[in-house]
Simulated scan of single mutants.
Amino acid sequence: MAESRPVTRDEFEIAIMCALPLEAEAVLYLFDEFWDREGDPYGRSQQDSNEYRTGRIGQDDVFLVILAGMGTINAANAARDLLSSYVKIRLCLVVGICGGVPSPEVSGHDDDIRLGDVVI
């Protein structure tokens, strides 16, 4: 059963950000339906240079933003730009390998952080 497609980008409340194309490709496998198969129906603000994919996961309309590159500056720029286009965001998930996780030695913990771990 196909869900109804959002009419405007103001109806999106969930964002997913990925720094690497490989991470974004993995997230796209979670999409149940795509809203942008025939081009971008929602557009973006003039100052927004992000690349987006829009669709549905379960009952939620979501959009995926792929960062221009890794690092905190690229993430901050992407977040600023996406907020100029998608103004109703309530949840933004940063999905990927999370190279910015503090090392256990610095934080005082001796548990290793391994590939596949979930960090919130």
Rank of each mutant, 00 (worst) to 15 (best):
E3Q: 12
E3F: 09
P6D: 01
P6Q: 03
P6N: 02
T8N: 03
T8E: 01
T8R: 04
R9N: 10
D10C: 01
D10Q: 06
E13L: 06
E13Q: 13
E13V: 12
I14W: 14
I14M: 13
A15M: 12
I16D: 01
I16P: 05
A19W: 05
L20P: 04
P21R: 13
E23S: 10
A24I: 09
E25T: 11
V27K: 08
F31E: 02
F31D: 01
F34P: 00
D36H: 11
D36G: 10
D36A: 10
D36W: 09
E38T: 05
P41W: 10
G43Q: 08
G43A: 09
R44S: 11
Q47T: 11
Q47K: 11
Q47L: 12
D48Q: 07
S49E: 10
Y52I: 05
I57K: 07
I57Y: 05
G58L: 12
G58R: 14
D60Y: 15
D61A: 15
V62C: 15
L64E: 00
V65M: 02
V65F: 00
V65E: 00
V65L: 01
I66D: 00
I66F: 04
G69F: 03
M70Y: 07
M70S: 06
M70V: 12
T72K: 14
N74H: 15
N74K: 05
A75L: 13
A76Y: 01
N77Y: 04
A78M: 02
A78K: 04
R80M: 06
L82Q: 00
S85P: 02
S85L: 03
Y86D: 00
V87Q: 11
K88P: 00
K88C: 05
K88G: 00
R90G: 04
R90C: 03
L93W: 10
L93A: 14
V94T: 10
V95I: 13
G96D: 08
G99A: 12
G100F: 09
S103W: 02
S103V: 08
V106F: 08
S107I: 15
S107A: 09
G108I: 03
G108V: 04
G108R: 03
D110W: 07
D110S: 08
D111K: 13
D111Q: 13
D112Q: 10
I113C: 12
R114G: 01
D117K: 09
D117L: 10
D117I: 09
V118A: 09
V118K: 10
V119P: 02
